[in-house]
Design a protein around this nucleic acid. Sequence first.
DNA 1: TATGAATGAGTCTTCATTCAT
DNA 2: CATGAATGAAGACTCATTCAT
Lengths: 188, 188, 188, 188
Amino acid sequence: MPKPLRADARRNRERILDVAEAVFDAKGTRASTEDVASGAGVGIGTVFRHFPTKTDLLKAIIGRGVERMAAQIQVLVDEGDPATAFFEFFTRMVAEASSKKTVVDLLGEAAEDLRADKPIGVWRSAIEALLAKAQDAGAVRADVQPPEVLALLLGTCQAAVSAGWDERLRDRTLAIVFDGLRARGPQP
Amino acid sequence: MPKPLRADARRNRERILDVAEAVFDAKGTRASTEDVASGAGVGIGTVFRHFPTKTDLLKAIIGRGVERMAAQIQVLVDEGDPATAFFEFFTRMVAEASSKKTVVDLLGEAAEDLRADKPIGVWRSAIEALLAKAQDAGAVRADVQPPEVLALLLGTCQAAVSAGWDERLRDRTLAIVFDGLRARGPQP
Amino acid sequence: MPKPLRADARRNRERILDVAEAVFDAKGTRASTEDVASGAGVGIGTVFRHFPTKTDLLKAIIGRGVERMAAQIQVLVDEGDPATAFFEFFTRMVAEASSKKTVVDLLGEAAEDLRADKPIGVWRSAIEALLAKAQDAGAVRADVQPPEVLALLLGTCQAAVSAGWDERLRDRTLAIVFDGLRARGPQP
Amino acid sequence: MPKPLRADARRNRERILDVAEAVFDAKGTRASTEDVASGAGVGIGTVFRHFPTKTDLLKAIIGRGVERMAAQIQVLVDEGDPATAFFEFFTRMVAEASSKKTVVDLLGEAAEDLRADKPIGVWRSAIEALLAKAQDAGAVRADVQPPEVLALLLGTCQAAVSAGWDERLRDRTLAIVFDGLRARGPQP
DNA sequence: TATGAATGAGTCTTCATTCAT
DNA sequence: CATGAATGAAGACTCATTCAT
């Protein structure tokens, strides 16, 4: 088990992570590690002590985001109204993404190793659960499968990031996707 | 008006553009200009003579793609079946994008100046025309507006690039989006 | 006079020295001080408390080796067979060196200050004694002087380290050197 | 075949090589590439254009030395007096090495890849030829084999470098080694 | 005293861009 | 016009050393 960090070190680690997330979301992952360091008010050596590689730093950021989101998802899975939880999750996800270039950047990267643990992969089972519930409740048509849901989620998140959507546009776009997903009578 | 280039110069320009497109699509925009030059069999100086900046080169690539696509769109606008042309265009677009990292990369970039002339902007009017026709034909519901169509287009293109879709997944995903867009009887 | 260390401190000092010697012999003096610290199971601060400078650490290692060897030499001087003690010493020295990159590294260093107290200097008198005895016994010819003996010793040690000699090669090489040193009838 | 460099580039390449050799011989291979660049009056980028890696630069230096020496060896092999050519070569080698830390450094390095093409390996056949001739001429005893000759050569070179021999000491040391190598009547 | 987190100068390396040939 | 050598500003990463805990 990783030995617990000293209090000051953990504080620094968090600060670095916070700043790094902000910096990368704002400038993209090409932002320099020095930017992160100075933004966090620490020497560059400190950043590299905590994250021996820029990739490690990125992974840590992703990891945090994943966990943050995973917690929310779990609540929705456990307590949400089956008919709406899925859509709420989807919406929240896209809203979250709107301000994060990191997401798009990471997906465009050559950094295959980063993609190894695709965040979405981690959520897969939770998302599948949400989807199943929604389908059972008749809120999503039955023939929709997880892969296309993930694809749509990814696509809308990325679009949200790169287009800098305003809220109204986001809602109208999601409305269309949601209509497509919703169960329906026979197509005319 | 730009002075007409000597024949060999124009040939060079085209070759550079071809190679650059291939290189950037394959390796992302971080690929070096030298890679492009050597791939094109010219000196790096030649690349910079034609495109004084890497950004200029990127812009030119985008521009070519835009024009290429615009021509196809126009054909669809002029001759296509109103009810299907719009969907065909959308599908073709996403299929095209699948192999191009350039697209995602450019959208993840800090290069705001590159975004200035968003390719999609150029197509806007053509797309609007396709959309309007489809709506007139009752193939797309009337309350859908161009911005969300562009958003969906962008999103699915990006997702296609970064997820490396296979054809089946692409079709299933688009099917959902198209269903969302399609005109329909009153929602229950 | 240096104040006597606390028992635990002295233990630490020894452990650090042991580990440092092993580490530097294995990886060369470029190995990091942190490597030494973690290998010794102490914090890096502890290493620097005992040896304020990496150079100090290196000096201490050399010093220990010198003393270790000096003791052996003294035994040979006092009790060895005059005719063979010298050769035995020489052989043992080279055998010892075989596994130690530290030796070669230190000699290649820019660290002039390290060279100040050349270990060999410390042994000089003992070596001179061994040599003199061997010469008196007629086992080494009379016109050989200490400096060239030291030079040969250094050279064979270094070669042994960098070439990774096997035992047979070492013996054959030393045989030649020893023949060169041995007393002989008039040269033809 | 590597396309011939432009005149100015070749000049630069040579200058860089000269300076690098001087710098590394003086300060050891730990000297920075920037030192080399500024010493050569070029930008650091120029050094890396010619030698994409510090290791490449080192290899090139070694290579030059090897060739330089190889030429001399060949002359000795072809035209030298069999009885003395071998000893002359040995002496010259050691004299050459005296001022070069690079040699010792490279041998003490962790840079296994550098060792791959050990210069001495390249000379092996020439040295074997010299040795064989000397043995045929009765100047070196018959049971001496190439490996120990190379070992002695390496050792004396390294010792010469790190000890900063004066000429007298070098000669006395070599005299002993040569005596050891020389053919002789039966040992008393 | 021991610890290990923080520091930051220094190293190698890449690449867009300029300019002499 | 074409060429490719030169440039130097970054950027990622290392490590001896200091200092707060």
